[in-house]
Design a protein around this nucleic acid. Sequence first.
DNA 1: CGGCGGCGTTAAGAACGCGTCAAGATCATC
DNA 2: GATGATCTTGACGCGTTCTTAACGCCGCCG
Lengths: 224, 224
Amino acid sequence: MTRVLVIDDEVPILRALKINLAARKYEVSTAADGASGLAAMARERPDVLILDLGLPDMDGTDVIRGVRGWSSTPIIVLSAWGQESQKVAALDAGADDYVTKPFGMDELLARLRAAVRRAAPAPDEPVISTAEFTVDLARKRVTRAGADVRLTPTEWQLLEVLARNAERLVTQRQLLQEVWGPGYQNEAHYLRVYMASLRRKLEPDPSAPRYLLTEPGMGYRFCP
Amino acid sequence: MTRVLVIDDEVPILRALKINLAARKYEVSTAADGASGLAAMARERPDVLILDLGLPDMDGTDVIRGVRGWSSTPIIVLSAWGQESQKVAALDAGADDYVTKPFGMDELLARLRAAVRRAAPAPDEPVISTAEFTVDLARKRVTRAGADVRLTPTEWQLLEVLARNAERLVTQRQLLQEVWGPGYQNEAHYLRVYMASLRRKLEPDPSAPRYLLTEPGMGYRFCP
DNA sequence: CGGCGGCGTTAAGAACGCGTCAAGATCATC
DNA sequence: GATGATCTTGACGCGTTCTTAACGCCGCCG
């Protein structure tokens, strides 16, 4: 049976979720604020977390970071309409999906199923290759034309995040967060320096990238 | 069978709707004022709500907010001719569509069908496509005729909000709020500039838009 | 008929983002 | 403590994007 933890301070929503989820054979527990939510998270180890961003005691993204510090449990975020930036921040902090309030129960259930399904098969294909080079995520190795390519630690981390999200656009904030940690989310400059050096080592023509693409104003994308 | 709740205080309209909707195999219930309407809403959980803005006891937008606090049931608003600002307020409060009195039954039925259709499927895979182009929300990608379309960040954000509310009328205020943030709600001018450039990149004939439609005085609508 | 407001289009300067180079600062290693 | 690699920071040029203003069009209303 799938266990769900709901962290929300609004009683009507809490009750509605409890009833509907229980009816679908989920095992539901609840918490009304961030602090007790984190405690419940550690105590009960649920399979999914549903988190309202508008909590009385803590910022929603801080709760996410608190969880992501030690767990990769899927997190679905509830946010009010019009808080686009909050949603982005939540996703950057490590949330998996979001639902805008007011939400239809069907939509939430669908996203819940999707999150659980995604979480189950963890081991991805650990080797990603392009026509020019291959990235072995497990061995932390990059090969080009038969030979290993020497990458500095920072270069590798950057490439790893991009490779894990192949084909996906990864925002600058997300990259900075994953490679340099929180507090560096505005140092977009680092990205340019290191993307340049990655391209110099991996691209056939570094000034006209084919695999490590820039999406101006938004981020980067790795296209094998 | 689709269940419809009609909240209206005018007896002739109420009767006309009841007859016409029942003839189309809708299950109809009615309420004559805001307070009993909200009660009926909670009790009966209809699939659609048709709400007259000119109620004797409450402001129409307050009824909408009362519903939107806990439910995303589609709301179609009825308003007298010439009450533009009321309509905008209603849409901002969370209504899905509006019909101006006096209205043709065919138009109302069409909007009703559209509202129900929209509410039904929770989009698991966030890809919205038209005959001309497709929008992939997760990958942040727009494809037209097999090729990627380059959008600037602002263009993308604007399209994203419209796509997430496909088929639905989005007010200028909502768009400005989501894309430029609060404090820009009167800069309707930006919308025109960026809608123009979106149309230039996506519409087959930018001067006669088929997908990115203008609702004069109100806002815009994305119709796949 | 003429003014007014909403909408679409275009253009131009300002502001910003990106890539590049290079000079310190820091760290690891011996 | 010296050396070399790596990371941080600054400066600059270039192209893109944002912002703002101006103008034409259309429907509405006095």
